[in-house]
Computed example of a mutant assay.
Amino acid sequence: MDDALMTAGIVIVTGLVVVFAVLIVLIFLIWAFGKIVTSFTNRPKQEKTPPKAQEKAEVKAVSPSVKQAVLSPQAEDGLSDEIVAVIAAAVASLSESTGVSYGIKSIRRANSGRPSWATAGVLENTRPF
């Protein structure tokens, strides 16, 4: 009887040691794989031309009529000048915060599949607790 308990104890301890050793190896492999993937995805992309030179090239390539279209966006019928000004201010604010120059070519309503109130109802009723 004493040999059976001793053998059972050895089997249990060996099983626990093997399981935890394999778990530690798996944790290390997953951690290393994550580091490798993030090192590849966070590499800075090398551009052919510096950003300032590229912007200057785009400005030179734009004709005066296109420049005027960018400065005064074409708005859909029914939009007031105030709404166009608010949208332009939002785009200008985004341009300042990101450091990238954006412009508005046209403004039109987005075609949504369902009304705003229906979307709000779906979001309200499907929100997790």
Rank of each mutant, 00 (worst) to 15 (best):
G121F: 03
A21G: 15
A21N: 06
L79G: 00
V100L: 13
I87F: 09
S39V: 01
N125C: 01
G113H: 07
P73W: 02
I36G: 05
T7Q: 13
G9A: 13
G78D: 01
S106C: 01
I10D: 13
K105A: 01
V70K: 13
R108T: 05
R127L: 08
L94G: 12
V18L: 13
I107V: 11
E82S: 06
M6A: 15
L29S: 04
V17E: 10
L5E: 10
P73K: 04
V86L: 14
V19T: 15
D3L: 14
S63Q: 03
V70I: 11
V62Q: 06
T119W: 03
G9K: 14
V100Y: 09
D3R: 12
I107Q: 04
A53I: 04
A8W: 04
V18E: 05
A4E: 12
S80P: 00
A21M: 06
T7L: 12
R43H: 03
Q74E: 05
S101C: 07
S112V: 10
T98Q: 05
P50H: 09
P73C: 04
A118F: 11
R43P: 07
Q74T: 14
V25S: 06
P73T: 02
G103K: 09
V86M: 14
K105Y: 10
I10N: 11
E82T: 01
A4W: 00
S72F: 12
L5M: 08
G34I: 15
L5V: 12
V66H: 01
A53M: 09
I30L: 14
